[in-house]
Amino acid sequence: MSTDTVTTTTRTPRSATRVRRRSTPPRRWLLVAVLAILAAFVVFPLYWMVVSALTSGGQSQSTEFYLWPKEPTFANFTEVFSTQPVWRWIGNSVLISVVTTALSVVVSLGAGYALAKYRFWGRGLFYAAFMLTIMIPIQVTIVPSFLVVARIGLVDSPWAVILPTAFDVVGIFIARQFMLGVPDAIVEAARVDGAGEYRAFFSVVLPTCGPLVGVLVILAFMARWNDFLWPMVVLQGAENLTVPVGLSTLTNNPAFASPWGAVMAVATVTVLPILAVFLVFQKQFVQGISSTGIK
């Protein structure tokens, strides 16, 4: 894994180039057709979400089969955007996700490097303990966690969401895998040249981490974008909520009928940009994962 992985990004698979020169053979087209059918099924529920958002009342139900509403309407969108602070929710989500992602990438890079490249007292213990945290269901720790955050005085501020989630075990794990693949030789070479430990990291190791950072950013951003239970208990006030928490104020309550049209409209507005981002960056993303050495 070591040297190969780091260079994968720049290497186009030979077989790929060779095939591309020919025209696509018929069997490939069959595969494309199968994939297209499968993709249609996979996308359908999200398509149905959009259809629901465009149906008055948001309830895309009927006793007859149909694929497109007879009278599509933007009423759900205009109503929810005029009665709920949706832009604020989106703004908060973006802010919290971006800041947390940035912090967690830094934290994960550092931890991953330490765990991969040093042998020190407590390494195994920390690593095992980190892994343990993703196994404990949040329902059990949420009250104690809240007490801790309240004691520090963070509740009702975005930091209450940002700081605890900046510790991202999956990110640390991926970073460590990548760092294991960075050849020791280049770190040693830097040391021989008289660079300190930190300079060796910043000037030699970090520059090879581009794809790793890409993957960490995307995975962390998506995880934080969809975070629900924790932000739900620490954020307060309609203006300060993130999108999933904002949506939860409209659903899930026995006290009133949920405005599903509004919910679907907000969900549509928040999913489509992410789809677009992935569509544009999927190649870099896949190559990034390839070079992190999660394999």
């Binding site: 996979v42 996308v43 529920p45 999200l46 979400m49 998506m222 974008w225 969809n226 629900f228 999108v243 999933p244 949506l247 939860s248 659903t251 899930n252 919910v263 969900a267 928040t270 999913v271 992410i274 789809l275 992935f278």
Partner: peptide
């Protein structure tokens, strides 16, 4: 893309 949609 299904991965990015909220659970609710």
């Amino acid at each position: 893309v299904p991965m990015v949609a909220a659970g609710v």
